[in-house]
């Protein structure tokens, strides 16, 4: 029951409610637990409540970490075995 995916806020309604887009499906959820959610924000939804906002800059930073690892591995492969990295 822990599985959840990031959802995009597409509408902010009265009384801390909101509509999110969950992979093409519109769903009403509660925004009561987070402050100042706006249309376009990505949130983590669990049992009908947004628990936190996703920070796109931090997501980019994590992805950059993966990319750096890849670059390092490829370099290592090139230096070490002289082969081309997969």
């Amino acid at each position: 029951m822990c599985l959840a995916i990031p959802a995009r806020v597409v509408e902010v309604l009265a009384e801390d409610q909101g509509i999110v887009d969950l992979g093409g499906i519109r769903k009403q959820i509660s925004l009561e637990l987070i402050d100042g959610a706006a249309v376009g924000d990505y949130v983590i939804v669990h049992v009908g409540y947004a628990l936190s906002r996703l920070d796109p800059a931090e997501a980019e930073r994590t992805l950059a970490l993966f990319a750096a690892a890849e670059a390092a591995m490829n370099e290592g492969a090139a230096d070490g075995a002289g082969g081309t990295a997969a």
């Binding site: 637990l33 987070i34 628990l51 930073r61 994590t62």
Partner: peptide, 15 residues
């Protein structure tokens, strides 16, 4: 914290 896109040190204080 690998999940920095959604988790901070203090968490959700309101919750």
């Amino acid at each position: 914290n690998e999940f920095s896109r959604a988790v901070c040190r203090d968490g959700n204080l309101k919750a």
